[in-house]
Simulated assay, not measured.
Amino acid sequence: MSKRIAETLLACLLLWPLAGWTLDWDALKPEEQRVLAPFREQWAQIPEARQQRLREGAARWRQMTPEQRAALKARFRRWQSLDPEQRARIRERYERFRALPPEEQARIREGYRWFRNLPPERREALRERWRSMSPEQRRKVIEHRKQLHERWQRMSPQERDAARQRLRDRMRRSPER
């Protein structure tokens, strides 16, 4: 019987980290408690994986400059102002993005950086142009863009440079595009 008890205790000790037990609030460092204070009341009910993500976020917060913290607070206020359906749509899009291959994620990020670097009036003009398109027109634009991307990937560096120059020349001739 004592061998069975010992085996049970050993199994409990080995499986303990997998059981999802959470870290006690008092075990947090004082600076972690300060940053995570809004979660104090429900801390014991938060799953271990989420507690760990919150602790990692608190560590990043402590490393931020005051400007970075202010920008993050503003983004959080915007997030909180969204209605539940908007948040759900954003979460769904994020999950679909995370399911994409890394190359596709990188391509999307690059497109986003390009868009963010445009002057505000150009960004708004592109948004308005997109909004005015029918779903079929949007689908065609997306398909065309994929084809261009595939063609770009097959180009040599010299061909890419020439294509960039042609695009710059075309943009100078008709900047409204």
Score class of each variant (00 low, 15 high):
175 P>M: 03
48 E>T: 09
32 E>P: 08
120 P>C: 10
81 S>W: 08
155 M>S: 06
65 T>H: 05
22 T>P: 00
94 Y>V: 12
41 E>D: 14
173 R>K: 04
112 Y>V: 15
150 E>W: 07
128 E>D: 13
105 Q>F: 01
152 W>S: 03
111 G>I: 03
69 R>A: 10
171 M>V: 04
54 L>K: 06
49 A>I: 07
34 R>G: 15
78 R>C: 06
119 P>D: 13
163 A>H: 08
92 E>R: 11
106 A>Y: 02
177 R>I: 12
28 L>P: 03
37 A>E: 14
1 M>E: 04
161 D>M: 13
71 A>E: 12
148 L>N: 10
143 E>C: 01
94 Y>G: 09
157 P>N: 06
30 P>N: 13
21 W>P: 00
82 L>Y: 08
76 F>E: 14
65 T>D: 03
114 W>H: 11
146 K>Y: 13
57 G>K: 09
32 E>M: 15
16 W>K: 01
13 L>W: 03
67 E>I: 01
71 A>H: 06
140 K>A: 15
164 R>P: 02
47 P>I: 00
38 P>H: 12
151 R>I: 13
109 R>C: 08
48 E>V: 09
142 I>L: 14
137 Q>H: 09
68 Q>H: 01
74 A>H: 09
55 R>G: 09
65 T>P: 01
50 R>F: 03
160 R>C: 08
122 R>G: 06
67 E>T: 05
19 A>M: 08
148 L>R: 11
23 L>C: 01
33 Q>A: 15
127 R>D: 09
67 E>N: 03
132 S>A: 15
17 P>T: 01
17 P>M: 00
118 L>P: 02
54 L>A: 08
17 P>G: 00
148 L>W: 12
57 G>L: 13
87 R>E: 02
17 P>I: 00
171 M>W: 09
95 E>V: 10
151 R>F: 10
167 L>E: 02
25 W>I: 02
48 E>Q: 14
16 W>Q: 05
94 Y>S: 12
18 L>D: 00
61 W>N: 01
109 R>I: 08
138 R>I: 03
65 T>C: 01
167 L>F: 10
157 P>A: 10
66 P>F: 03
34 R>F: 15
84 P>D: 06
136 E>H: 13
8 T>L: 15
25 W>E: 01
58 A>R: 03
21 W>C: 07
170 R>F: 04
101 P>Q: 13
101 P>W: 05
171 M>S: 00
18 L>P: 00
79 W>E: 09
141 V>Y: 10
171 M>C: 02
96 R>F: 04
61 W>D: 02
38 P>E: 11
55 R>N: 05
70 A>T: 05
36 L>W: 11
120 P>K: 11
152 W>V: 04
67 E>K: 05
136 E>V: 12
91 R>E: 10
79 W>P: 07
51 Q>G: 03
155 M>K: 05
116 R>E: 10
16 W>P: 00
167 L>R: 03
100 L>F: 04
